[in-house]
C-alpha cells in the first residue's frame, strides 16, 4: 500500500487550478492552428488567430485564457493500493480554494441556484471518483465554463431511434447552440448508461486528446462523421460563419438498460482546459 497525505493532494490541486487555466493544452493549440490554416472565411481565420494569440498571451503572462475560469470539475482515479491520509474531498476542496485565490482566478460559483449568493472561493468542486487497480492517485482537473455548459443536453431516446437518432440529436444540439458557446467547440457525447451516467460520460469524453481516435472503429467512424456534419453547418468561429464549428467530437459509450437509449451532449468551448497530476 502507498499513503498519500491530504496536504499533498491539496497542494497538487491548487497548482492544477492555475496550470489548467493559464496553459492551453498543446493538442488544442495545434488544432486551432490546423483549422485556422484551412478556414475559408476571412473573418473566421482572423477570429481563430485571436484565439491562438490569446492562448499565447495567457501562457506567457500566466493569466487566465478565459475570464470564466469555470466550475472546478475533477476526475479522480484512486488506485486500490492507495491510502489517503485525511479526507480526499476536503483536500480537493481546499486545493480549489487556494488555487483560485492565489491564482487570481474568477470565483464563479453561487451557493444556491435560486438565491444566488457567490461562495467567494469557487468551491465546492464537482468530483468524480473511480477506483482503479494500482498504486497511483491520478487527479484530472477540467475547469468548465458556463457559456458552453449551458448549451449541453441529455435526451432519453428510444432503442428504435438507434444510431441515426443519436447522431441527429448531436448535430441538432450543436446547431441550436449556434454562436452561444464560443465556437469552435469540442463536442463530448455520452451514449448509454442511465440518465445521470450518460451526462457524466459526455463530460468525461472531453478529456480525450484532440487527434486521438476512438479505440472502437465503430465509434471512431461515428466521431468522424459527426465532425464533418457539424462543420458543414457553417456556424464557424464565434458563430459568424465559417468551416470551423468544432475541433473534435468525442464519444463515450456504456452498457445500458434494454428499454433505454440515453444520449448526452456536453459542449466545450475552445478554451478546452484539462490538466492532470499523479501522486
Amino acid at each position: 500500500m502507498k499513503t498519500v497525505r491530504a496536504d499533498q493532494i491539496s497542494d497538487a490541486v491548487a497548482k492544477l487550478c492555475m496550470d489548467a487555466n493559464y496553459n492551453l493544452g498543446p493538442d488544442v493549440m495545434q488544432a486551432l492552428k490546423d483549422f485556422r490554416d484551412r478556414e475559408e472565411s476571412p473573418v473566421g481565420k482572423e477570429l481563430l488567430d485571436q484565439c491562438i494569440v490569446n492562448a499565447e498571451i495567457a501562457h506567457k503572462d500566466q493569466v487566465p485564457i478565459c475570464q470564466d475560469t469555470g466550475f472546478a470539475v475533477f476526475f479522480v482515479e484512486l488506485g486500490d493500493q492507495v491510502i489517503v491520509e485525511g479526507n480526499l474531498m476536503a483536500a480537493i476542496t481546499d486545493g480549489v480554494r487556494r488555487g483560485y485565490k492565489d491564482g487570481f482566478l474568477r470565483k464563479s460559483i453561487v451557493e444556491d441556484p435560486l438565491r444566488r449568493k457567490n461562495t467567494g472561493d469557487n468551491t465546492p468542486p464537482v468530483v468524480w471518483i473511480d477506483v482503479v487497480p494500482g498504486y497511483n492517485l491520478k487527479i484530472i482537473i477540467a475547469p468548465k465554463g458556463g457559456g458552453s455548459e449551458n448549451m449541453s443536453e441529455v435526451k432519453m431516446l428510444k432503442p428504435s431511434d438507434g444510431e441515426k437518432g443519436v447522431k441527429d440529436f448531436v448535430v441538432d444540439r450543436v446547431k441550436r447552440s449556434g454562436s452561444n458557446p464560443c465556437p469552435p467547440v469540442i463536442v463530448g457525447v455520452g451514449i448509454g448508461g442511465t440518465y445521470d451516467k450518460c451526462a457524466q460520460l459526455s463530460k468525461k469524453a472531453l478529456l480525450r486528446e484532440i487527434g486521438s481516435k476512438h479505440v472502437d472503429p465503430y465509434y471512431a467512424a461515428m466521431e468522424e462523421e459527426l465532425l464533418t456534419r457539424i462543420n458543414d453547418l457553417g456556424i464557424g468561429p464565434q458563430g459568424l460563419g465559417g468551416r470551423t464549428t468544432a475541433l473534435a467530437v468525442f464519444v463515450e459509450a456504456h452498457p445500458c438498460h434494454i428499454a433505454s437509449l440515453p444520449a448526452a451532449v456536453n459542449i466545450q468551448c475552445h478554451a478546452a482546459r484539462h490538466k492532470s497530476a499523479v501522486l
Partner: peptide
C-alpha cells in the same frame, strides 16, 4: 460581438 474566449488578449 467581441471574441469569446480571447479574454487575455482583450484585457490589453
Amino acid at each position: 460581438a467581441a471574441t469569446g474566449g480571447a479574454a487575455a488578449l482583450i484585457s490589453k
